[in-house]
């Protein structure tokens, strides 16, 4: 499958979309399982609520606007799942539900539906939740079995966790982002099934680690802390909101990594992956403009 297609006109065939989305769901399952292992069933409840809300939201929106109901393409389920995995375990149910509805209706539906949104729905919903109810999104429950109610994330107190802890995920954080092993399993699955290319995740993590190192952070800890790996694998790679051209994707990924390093070092929030990817999404049309002409010309030349 050619992954550098223009997203808007081409991803509308429900069959191929469903296969892609099914692959993403399978790749996310290790993260869900790891999240439940780390945080208990509260994590499962949060993820389920946001997923169900996103699917119901899409269903109701498409029915209300008299469109063909296409929830069976599973894209709303993936959006809800990714949003849920971005939340802290045990977030209030209404928070997860509102986030799911905001993602599929405001960020995607108002712009025309799948393929027409210019920004990643799950991430925009997370940014909305963080702006609206900051106390729930900065309150991280400790892993189950640890003797504390809340705890500092690795980004809030660097150096308090070993590399093995960071890798396996018995640390506080968002449900899906803590276990790097599970994310890597999902990444390998997505690359092997050719659902995504390795380019964006690898470039983004490498760029963040390198820039973080220049700004004085441990590169290994940078790569393994917070939501960097999860965001790079599952959100920065969204076909609809990343550039279509290969050089555009390189600049996009390296730029997003740079922004992650800058936000972690200087902003008021300990984590900046959400904002870094959103800003990269917003710049994607401009990046495509810079590289499109050359690529089109190139293809024409090859065919002739």
């Amino acid at each position: 499958m050619n992954l550098h297609l223009s997203p808007a006109p081409h991803v509308h065939s429900p069959q191929s979309t469903r296969v892609l989305m099914l692959n993403v769901i399978v790749a996310l399952l290790p993260c869900v399982i790891a999240g439940v292992w780390v945080f208990g069933f509260a994590a499962l409840a949060t993820v389920l609520v946001s997923t169900v809300a996103a699917v119901l939201g899409e269903l109701v929106w498409q029915a209300l606007t008299k469109q063909k109901v296409r929830v069976d393409d599973l894209s709303a389920a993936v959006t809800g799942l990714i949003l849920g995995l971005n939340l802290p375990a045990g977030a209030p149910w209404w928070l997860a539900a509102l986030g799911g509805v905001f993602a599929v209706v405001i960020v995607k539906g108002l712009f025309g539906g799948l393929g027409d949104n210019f920004i990643n729905p799950a991430l925009a919903a997370r940014a909305m939740l963080l702006a609206s109810w900051p106390k729930y999104l900065t309150h991280w429950p400790a892993p189950a079995g640890v003797d504390a109610v809340t705890a500092a994330t690795p980004l809030a107190s660097p150096g308090s966790y070993t590399t093995a802890q960071l890798f396996l995920g018995r640390i506080p954080g968002a449900i899906g982002e803590v276990c790097k092993l599970a994310i890597l399993i999902g990444f390998v699955y997505l690359v092997v099934t050719k659902t995504i290319s390795w380019r964006i995740p690898v470039a983004m993590v490498a760029s963040a680690a390198l820039c973080g190192w220049v700004l004085g952070a441990n590169p290994v800890a940078t790569a393994l802390s917070g939501g960097l790996l999860f965001g790079a694998v599952f959100m920065a790679t969204d076909y609809v909101t990343c550039p279509m051209t290969v050089p555009g994707q390189w600049v996009y990924a390296v730029g997003a990594g740079l922004l992650v390093a800058i936000f972690r070092r200087f902003s008021v929030y300990p984590e900046g992956v959400t904002y870094a990817i959103l800003l990269a999404n917003i710049s994607a049309p401009l990046l495509d403009r810079c590289f499109r002409r050359r690529v089109y010309g190139h293809e024409k030349g090859e065919k002739a």
Partner: peptide
């Protein structure tokens, strides 16, 4: 629990856009 975003410029843009719609 109030949705603080609505008091911010981001919420203003959203509210006006939806009202117009």
């Amino acid at each position: 629990e109030p949705m603080l975003m609505l008091a911010m410029p981001a919420g203003g843009f959203l509210a006006l856009g939806l009202l117009m719609g």
